[in-house]
Structures are given as structure tokens and as C-alpha cells.
Design a protein around this nucleic acid. Sequence first.
DNA 1: CTGGGTGCAAAGTATTTGCATGAAC
DNA 2: GTTCATGCAAATACTTTGCACCCAG
Lengths: 141, 141
Amino acid sequence: MVFLWNNYKMNTFTDILREHNLKATPQRLAILHIISKYGHINIDSLYNEIKEQFSSISLATIYKNINSMTDEKLLVEVKLPNTKSVYEIIKEGHAHLKCEACGDVEDRSIDTSVFSKISNEHHFKVNHSDVILSGICKNCQ
Amino acid sequence: MVFLWNNYKMNTFTDILREHNLKATPQRLAILHIISKYGHINIDSLYNEIKEQFSSISLATIYKNINSMTDEKLLVEVKLPNTKSVYEIIKEGHAHLKCEACGDVEDRSIDTSVFSKISNEHHFKVNHSDVILSGICKNCQ
DNA sequence: CTGGGTGCAAAGTATTTGCATGAAC
DNA sequence: GTTCATGCAAATACTTTGCACCCAG
């Protein structure tokens, strides 16, 4: 699914924001657009990219919005080893493959049966899983 | 394996530090002792606990040591959702179960075949895995 | 119109750095 | 004796907050 900077998708993000009790401001739409363009992004890169459209946007606005969207479960923070966190639009169960050479992060679907197994064996009710595999990607090998 | 504050174990940590090109200072031995006592700990708790033995220890010393021991692959940082990172002595493949109610973090061994599968299918050479399952632990249910 | 959002500047937190002294080996 | 570690204070980096103004609904 590719998100484009057009009316159809802007309306989609508008709707999504409203469903999450957030007003659809141009800054928020731009944040969502950029995140969906890259899949996941860190605060600094997001700030740099969004400044091209909103030259006077404040870093505080970025932080406030990332936090409110995260609180409303629209975004999720992915904490990565040896790098800054990235943020992405929430979606279900996938692993992150982080290349230690080029820094690139890919999403991969994952068989979650291991987790339900742990869940059952240890009577631990799993609500959310974070799986990050660090290594060397295909291109860098 | 239980680590105790006795000569045997202190010598062990002394050796481990030297094997990692680090001098075995009392502060470092205390840090390792405390980490092994709890399994994993965040910077603030570590600082508070270590002050009981070294009342004048500096936070900078904690940071420097955690960083050097992490650089030398003696410790590893575990980044957790919605909480500060904890540090633990490096050991192989285990998942972290983090209780969203009481905040406790448990280690569980994990079947890594899923990861080798991803590895093979996507030609990604996995060096390290971080698996964090967030949910509700047995006691808090 | 009303409530929430934005941008700025300032305040907080967290982490790192420089340097003189001191300890490990 | 050398080299590296410690502890302090200062610097830097990162994130949040307060407030006046503004815009989405």
C-alpha cells in the first residue's frame, strides 16, 4: 500500500486522526505522510523533512504530536539498539530487521506462535511484542 | 547461577573485566555485582544502590563504566517500551517479558528457529535478537 | 465561537566531556 | 612509573512545559 500526497490519502489520514480524537492539522497530516512514505523515521529526520514544507514548524510541535499520536495508539515507537528510536504507524505483529552496516530497517511478518507458547507456558498475557533482529542485510553482505 | 558478594565471585568478575581489557576497579566490581543480583537494572536504580557502598561515586562514573562495558560486549542495553533501558550481563538468546502492571521484567529462553527462518528466507544474517513481550504477568492477572 | 494546536522561549532531564587527582597493574 | 579510572563541574543533547496567538470543527 503506497501513500501519496493526494486528496484521497489526505482524507484518509484526516479520518484516522479524527477517529483518534485528534484534530487534523496540516502539520499532523504532513507528519503522517512522511512516516508512511518511509515506513518509520526518527525525530530528527522527520523534523528536517517536514521543514521543507513548514519552514517555521517547531521541534516542540513534532514532539507534542508524536506523543499525542502515540498516546492515542496511532503511532508506535520502535526502540532500536545503538540508534535513535523510530516511529511508525501502528500495525500488527511484525519484526524489524536492522542492518548494522547501512542502518536500514525493514519490516518482516513473523510467526507469532512462539509468543503464544511462552504466553501459555508462563501464564503471561502478551499484549504487544517488539522483535528486533540486528545483523547484516542482503545488500551489505 | 547465583552471584554472591564473596571472593570467588569477585575474582570471577575481576577476571571477566580483565578479559575485556578493563581494569578491575571496586566501582566496576560493585556494578557487576548489583547487575547480577537483579538480572537487569536501570541507571538510576544502579546509582542509588551503589551509593550505599560508595557514597561519593559519581553518576558520570556509572555512565562511563556502563558505556565501556557495553562497548567491550560485557553488558548489553535492553531498551524497553515506556520505561528506561536496563542493562544486563550479556548472555545468549532470551526474551524479556515486561509486565505493564508491575513493571517487572523476566527473562525467558526462546526458540530461535523463527529467526533462522527469517534469516534464510530474506538473506539477512542475524547477529543479535531483541525480543520484548509486553503484557500482564502471572501475579498481576 | 470554543477547544485544542502551534511556535517560541525557557525549563527539565539525561548523558557526555575535560581535567586534576588517584588507583590498578 | 604508566596507563587508565574516578569524581567533580561544566557542557551538550534531548524532551517537556508555559503561554500568547491561531485555526479546525
